[in-house]
Design a protein around this nucleic acid. Sequence first.
DNA 1: GGAATAGTGTCTGTAAGACATTATTAG
DNA 2: CTAATAATGTCTTACAGACACTATTCC
Lengths: 261, 261
Amino acid sequence: MTDEEEFLAGYDPSRYPAVAVTVDVVALTIRDGVPHVLLVERGRPPFQGLWALPGGFVKVGAEDLDTAAARELAEETGLETPGRVHLEQLATYGDPGRDPRMPVVSVAYLAFGPTMADPQAGSDASDAAWVPVPSLGLTASGAQPPGATRRLAFDHARILSDGLERARGKLEYTPLATAFLPEVFTIPELRAVYECVWGEALHAGNFHRKVLSVPGFVEGTGQTTASGGRRGGPRARLYRSGDARLLHPALLRPGTEDGVR
Amino acid sequence: MTDEEEFLAGYDPSRYPAVAVTVDVVALTIRDGVPHVLLVERGRPPFQGLWALPGGFVKVGAEDLDTAAARELAEETGLETPGRVHLEQLATYGDPGRDPRMPVVSVAYLAFGPTMADPQAGSDASDAAWVPVPSLGLTASGAQPPGATRRLAFDHARILSDGLERARGKLEYTPLATAFLPEVFTIPELRAVYECVWGEALHAGNFHRKVLSVPGFVEGTGQTTASGGRRGGPRARLYRSGDARLLHPALLRPGTEDGVR
DNA sequence: GGAATAGTGTCTGTAAGACATTATTAG
DNA sequence: CTAATAATGTCTTACAGACACTATTCC
């Protein structure tokens, strides 16, 4: 089939059924030391009553994908994207039958943001909430066990799983952990982000020295916290994010076993 | 707008014009120590006479994206994807106006393969060829200077640029450099792949020791080449790809300046 | 023989991890 | 005071890069 024939066929729904393009956003934040993902409860079929990533249809030709993703994120959280949030394209999903209604290609995005207020339910969702990721009981392959309290719609368990893995990797070689924190933060708070996303404890002393040794990761403000920690300890110095886009040398996860075969 | 309204609107071309989904493949190989990309010369408008990445429309709902990309690659090269070729999703492009005919979202894929025969021109292309990447004169931002001998159609200069940058990064922490080589290869041949993709000379002795020290990168065959190098030197030992999926520790590029600000 | 190349040995600076230590704060 | 914690110091091991060196092959 030639290019032009295929082009014309695109207008013939009997040969190529209507295709929809959506964006879905894996928006992550941290509350009480636990990673949370923004989910909406579906108010109508298909998958009524199940939870889904916030997303929507893209007006292809009228807006670009990044803009559509930023719009979806702002609608649910009020977060403006040229701000402290990080938003990047994650991957695109187009398996047959992933939406029972029609063929849908979904461009997934990944967002990191600081702790923020609970979202408002939109008109098409019966509820919206920041949901603790561990409560979803995701397996490494992106499947969800039958006993989970909140079931995810479509292939969103897989998308979320991919987003979490991308997030774990991003913290290794970019300073994006700071996107989870307010503008000013302490090194122990930054360490808590790493421990929460990676799911393992880090050595406080070595982490501290390492962060300060990477050029451009953080810059000091000369200030300290107003008081010490909850259970004692001195006041911590306050930092803000530096100007580095990449961490050199990187902060590698200790858990990664040699040679993932 | 509710979910259902948007869903129905997807069937109304006056509100949401027909959308096409395509896959485009950045297929890379190495010839004579120079990276080459597979391109097809467009035989009809738009961009007639310009060169484009091989690609085509996806039958969303009837095939998944990976399968569609593998099909496009096989059509041009005869390479079967569950084989020695590496194929992975790169990114998705959907800027308004990127195709002058209609709104098109393109899912780009990245492929690495060993040196192979010249492709045959398809019915919709006046020519197809492995084109040396340096001859395209790409800039870092993915633009093409006006004087280039072969101009790229659509936003394919940008896609190719993104693919090359991904390829450079992939060589650092995966053993995918071996995908550019035949099943059996020497360490100096492997080094040539790195030097070609990264565009800088590597220290032969250190590279040799490093490759052998990474578990699972390569495994020896016990054989050597039949003769020495073109300009002298001993016979090199032959290796095949090992079972590692990730390199630990990674082979970092020397050129990367600290803290890309 | 001369030049180029495969592969190994050696040394040095840097960085990561384990552990110890000091100072400061809450309760 | 006691416990917890921020921040720094010390030591050991691993690794990257620079350089030297040997052995082998082509011309």
